[in-house]
Amino acid sequence: MPKAGSRRSRRRFSVEAFVLLPMALAGTVALAEPPLQPYAVVGDSIPRPLTGQPGDPDAGRRIVADRQEGLCLLCHSGPFPEQPLQGDLAPALDGAGERWSSGQLRLRIVDARRVSPGTIMPSYYRTQGLVQVAPAFVGRPILTAEQIEDVVAYLATLRR
């Protein structure tokens, strides 16, 4: 971390801690963003896409591989020969499109807790019930509805 920036961000954080902690104790963090698209869970799946546009598998591949955006390779591995640093906290993504329908994949990304209550996999389309969220991320899901459709479209192509 560059020395010059760290002092500034420290001051910013110390103020935030005062502001955020009381809200965090109240259970949720205030929302300023527009609400999420509604979706319906059927069994272990979200059959209907979150958007009117079909997802783009190439964009989805980029999101999955991106360590700031999708974050997937922190925990998972997958068919990304160009990415030497992959995680092993979770099942490999290879073959995911063979194991699961698009609707099942969608629910696993939107809210993996619905399938596996204690899971460490974050719910990518959720803004409520979170504690001590960094200000830059308050009220925002990890991925947008469009990005989730892209990721689903990409995962569906993963066949062994």
């Binding site: 965090a24 974050l71 992959q86 995680g87 092993d88 906290l89 460490i120 974050p122 719910s123 959720r126 979170l130 504690v131 001590q132 969220v133 960094a134 991320f137 925002r140 990890i142």
Partner: peptide
């Protein structure tokens, strides 16, 4: 805690030694 909704224990107790 946080947007990723993780606890220290989930990484350091449950997944220590993993990558």
């Amino acid at each position: 805690q946080g947007q990723l909704n993780l606890s220290c224990a989930q990484c350091h107790d449950d997944n220590a030694g993993r990558s």
